[in-house]
Amino acid sequence: MTSARAGSDTSCMAALQAAGSALAVAEQLNDGLLALAWADAPGASETFAGSVTA
Score class of each variant (00 low, 15 high):
Met1Lys: 09
Thr2Trp: 01
Thr2Ser: 06
Thr2Ile: 04
Ser3Trp: 15
Ala4Lys: 04
Ala4His: 10
Ala4Ser: 10
Ala4Gln: 11
Ala4Trp: 09
Ala4Asp: 03
Ala4Pro: 01
Arg5Lys: 11
Arg5Leu: 11
Arg5Glu: 13
Ala6Pro: 00
Ala6Glu: 11
Ala6Thr: 12
Gly7Val: 08
Gly7Pro: 00
Ser8Glu: 15
Asp9Asn: 10
Ser11His: 13
Cys12Phe: 14
Cys12Ile: 12
Cys12Asn: 10
Met13Asn: 13
Met13Trp: 14
Met13His: 15
Ala14Asn: 04
Ala14Phe: 08
Ala15Met: 06
Leu16Gly: 02
Gln17Ile: 14
Gln17Asn: 12
Ala18Thr: 06
Gly20Leu: 05
Gly20Ser: 04
Gly20Arg: 03
Gly20Thr: 07
Ser21Val: 07
Ala22Tyr: 05
Ala24Phe: 15
Ala24Glu: 10
Val25Arg: 03
Val25Leu: 07
Ala26Ile: 08
Glu27Val: 05
Gln28Pro: 00
Leu29Met: 13
Leu29Arg: 10
Asn30Arg: 10
Asn30Gln: 12
Asn30Trp: 05
Asn30Leu: 13
Asp31His: 09
Gly32Arg: 00
Gly32His: 00
Gly32Gln: 03
Gly32Asn: 02
Leu34Arg: 02
Leu34Trp: 02
Leu36Gly: 13
Leu36Cys: 08
Trp38Ile: 05
Trp38Pro: 00
Ala39Gln: 04
Asp40Gln: 04
Asp40Val: 04
Asp40Ala: 11
Gly43Asn: 06
Gly43Met: 04
Gly43Ala: 01
Gly43Thr: 08
Gly43Arg: 03
Ala44Tyr: 03
Ala44Gln: 06
Ala44Leu: 01
Ser45Asp: 11
Ser45Glu: 10
Glu46Tyr: 12
Glu46Ala: 15
Glu46Pro: 05
Thr47His: 12
Thr47Glu: 12
Thr47Gly: 11
Phe48Ile: 01
Phe48Glu: 03
Phe48Gly: 04
Phe48Asn: 03
Gly50Ser: 08
Gly50Ala: 06
Gly50Tyr: 06
Val52Asp: 08
Thr53Gln: 09
Ala54Asp: 15
Ala54Leu: 14
Ala54Pro: 08
Ala54His: 12
Ala54Arg: 08
